[in-house]
């Protein structure tokens, strides 16, 4: 029996989150730099917290990924490096079925606020399910943008959703 047979796909949508700037913070000063910038500080490794439009994930003992709204200053830290992630956002009831075709993780377990690093369509990605709005953010190296955007757009179209952009790029 198909567990997703009754899912309504018509409201599935894909957008680009180019309103966020990514940074990698590493080293013993990373946590204090985040705190000084007023950013959230996740306690557990491989977890994330969001506040004020910013998303911070802890990816190691003293390593963090921070995604800040455009225009916000980067945390003041010698070991803070800008990243060039492309971030897609999937919304709608059919997101689990969409992701089931691209990633082997069981997304039925993924709750709002959960952080995951996994392979999506063969590309190493980070995934975060927003607390509000329930969008699934998918971040990856921008070098894979052409490939992954094409894959996502095709699947969203096949599943009956629509593509959109957010951030004023077009």
């Amino acid at each position: 029996m198909n567990a997703y047979a009754s899912t309504d796909m018509s409201n599935l949508s894909l957008s680009v989150r180019d309103d966020l700037c990514g940074y990698l913070l590493t080293g013993p000063e990373s946590a204090s730099a985040l705190s000084a910038a007023g950013l959230p500080l996740p306690e557990a490794q491989l977890s994330a917290e969001e506040a004020g439009g910013a998303l911070v994930a802890r990816t190691g003992s003293d390593e963090y990924l921070a995604f800040l709204p455009k225009g916000q200053n980067a945390p003041a830290c010698a070991w803070c490096f800008p990243r060039a992630d492309r971030i897609l956002a999937v919304q709608g009831e059919g997101w689990i079925e969409l992701m089931a075709q691209l990633c082997q993780f069981d997304f039925r377990k993924m709750q709002p606020g959960d952080w995951l690093m996994a392979s999506v369509a063969g590309v190493n990605c980070w995934l975060y399910r927003e607390q509000s709005g329930n969008a699934l953010l998918i971040g990856f190296d921008a070098g894979f943008d052409h490939y992954l955007s094409d894959v996502f757009n095709t699947l969203v179209s096949e599943l009956g959703g629509k593509e959109s952009t957010k951030g004023g790029a077009l």
């Binding site: 491989l46 990816t59 690093m117 996994a118 392979s119 190493n124 990605c125 980070w126």
Partner: peptide, 8 residues
């Protein structure tokens, strides 16, 4: 030794 690529 195993290396998990997505998390590094």
């Amino acid at each position: 030794r195993w290396y998990h690529r997505p998390t590094g």
